[in-house]
Amino acid sequence: MTGNLPFVVCMVFVALGLWTLLAKRNLIKLVIGLTLIENGVNLFLVALGYVQGGAVPIYTYAPPGVRMVLPTPQALTLTSIVIGLATTALALAFVVVIWRHRGTLDARKVRELRG
């Protein structure tokens, strides 16, 4: 059970992010909810690649005979973090423009498009 604990924590992150998106009204809090989901998924990826007692996956630094943690999930996480940065920045930029036009950050009031 303890072996699966990191994965449970990651899923708690994802669930918290979804809950933020569903329950919060402030547009910036919605963006925070997105980053919570993203962090949960990123942690999940890193946790997947962990090997008990493994060394840093840099070939020249690892002492001989020691197992390394998996390098691929870390590369994936790095890519995912960069993508997350771009989406967060773009979403926040949209929030700024919405605030300038409408003067509010309440998602319940920013709904000219409906029906």
């Binding site: 997105l34 989901i37 979403a91 423009v97 919405i98 036009h101 920013v110 000219e112 498009l113």
Partner: peptide
């Protein structure tokens, strides 16, 4: 224009959540 940005924000939220679940 306010309308386009509003649509973009809503689409962004949906796309990002969907994309992250695909990554999961």
């Amino acid at each position: 224009e306010a309308r386009g940005v509003e649509a973009a924000f809503k689409t962004m939220v949906m796309y990002t959540v969907g994309g992250l679940l695909v990554l999961l």
